Simulated assay, not measured.
Amino acid sequence: MVKTKKFHAPHGTISACHLNSSSSSETEGDSLRTMTIERARVPLSRWQQAAVAMGSAVGALVNPRRADLIAALGETTGKPAFEMVLERMKKSPEGRAILLDRPRVVSEQVGHAWDLPENTFGAAYARFMGSRNFSPDDRPPVRFMETDELAYVATRAREVHDLWHTLFGLPTNLIGESALKVIEFEQMYLPMCMLSVIGGTVRFNEKQRSMFLKHYLPWAVRAGRQCTDLMCIYYERHFSEDLEQVRRKWGIIPAPQHPK
């Protein structure tokens, strides 16, 4: 296991396990999570949302590496999609538990993944993050959702992105990210996902475009449709389970590794 970066809670903070030690600490933890989302939110009128969406779209096309612009585009164009996801979560037992607990995929709460057995889902996630020197704390906050509930759903969608990379065995190169955006579109119908795929294919060289269209695109469409509702999975409760078992349980089809 590559252990480039460990995600244990820093000294002086409340660890995830301690949040369950008493009713008072649970309340404190819930308040902290809610306050974090509330502080990040920026209320916008409809014309302001349209202006941010247009500016973000132009900026993201000019500089596709601007994660903040891509995030803003996803938020300002994705409200109907996030509302549908929210309703699906409310109808699912695990989805309701997620909405009630509001877990966060941040280092304080997922650092224990490093200590899990090698075959587990959590350990695979830790390897994925560590081998790339990624931190779960690096994602930009959600700012442009109208309600705290929608802001949390958008936050959850953003934070489980690397968990989906792990489950589907997708790399973080241009082909891997584009393929995952196809899966995200099949799961959530976010316009930003399809725009990202279009933008990605424009930047492919001829070999990459051929590989993506022939192998990864049809696989991603099938994988996104066949698997369970990924936004209704309480991933943190399954970290200690065998990776291959959870893939089978959730209908995950791993990505093609060496297409001919």
Rank of each mutant, 00 (worst) to 15 (best):
C232P: 02
H8D: 06
K6T: 11
A67V: 13
A53K: 00
R102H: 08
R209W: 13
F121A: 10
A255C: 07
A53Q: 05
E184R: 10
I183V: 08
E146K: 05
M211E: 09
D148G: 14
R225C: 03
S131C: 00
R247M: 10
S45I: 02
S56V: 03
R46Q: 11
A179T: 13
T120N: 11
T4A: 15
R39S: 07
E241S: 08
I198A: 10
R104T: 11
R209F: 15
M211D: 07
P171I: 00
A9M: 01
N205P: 04
G74M: 00
M211Y: 12
T13G: 12
V105I: 13
G12H: 04
N133W: 09
A126E: 08
R143H: 06
G169A: 09
F204T: 07
P254Y: 13
T228Y: 12
L163E: 01
A151T: 06
R104I: 10
E184I: 10
R46C: 07
T147I: 03
V153E: 01
K207M: 05
A16P: 08
T228F: 09
M192W: 05
K91V: 02
Q187F: 02
C232H: 05
H215A: 05
V202H: 10
S92W: 07
K91T: 10
P43V: 01
A57V: 01
E206A: 05
A124L: 12
A223P: 09
L69K: 08
E184D: 15
I175K: 14
E87F: 03
L230M: 15
L243Y: 09
G199H: 08
L99R: 03
N173W: 06
E75P: 09
F7V: 07
M145T: 08
P254K: 00
E83Y: 11
F212L: 06
F128C: 05
A72F: 01
T4K: 13
V2C: 03
P218W: 06
S107T: 08
R225Y: 11
E108G: 06
Y125A: 01
V42K: 14
E241G: 01
T77H: 13
A113T: 13
